[in-house]
């Protein structure tokens, strides 16, 4: 297929390089599965919306089972999840050690 090169004058972006906000991170959330009760508060507060709480049905209704997934491609490491967690189950750890 034939193509021609078109030139644009003035400010605009044709390449998006800073949208993977995970590259900004210097600390990352680490979840203690023992303490986590899957309440989902971190998910609600996450400003980038990268936390996903997955609950599975269990026979014992008092004990929730499942996991919290965080999309590290976009998690900026802001630490809000660790701040709002009512069970102190999230610790921000140094990205270099992760």
């Amino acid at each position: 297929m034939a193509e021609k090169v078109k030139t644009i004058y003035g400010p605009c972006a044709l390449v998006y390089c800073s949208t993977k906000t995970g590259t900004w991170r210097i600390v990352r959330p680490q979840i203690d599965g023992e303490k986590c009760v899957l309440c989902g508060i971190c998910e609600k507060y996450c400003p980038t919306g990268v936390v996903n709480t997955i609950k599975m049905k269990t026979e014992d209704k008092k004990k929730a089972e499942g996991r919290v997934e965080i999309d590290m491609t976009y998690c900026k490491g802001c630490g809000i999840c660790a701040n709002v967690c009512p069970h102190d189950s999230i610790t921000m750890i140094d990205e270099r050690e992760a």
Binding site: A2, E3, K4, K6, I8, C12, L14
Partner: peptide, 11 residues
């Protein structure tokens, strides 16, 4: 300077 932003367009 004059070709900072360019893209290819089908013709």
């Amino acid at each position: 300077a004059m070709t900072l932003r360019q893209y290819r367009e089908a013709i």
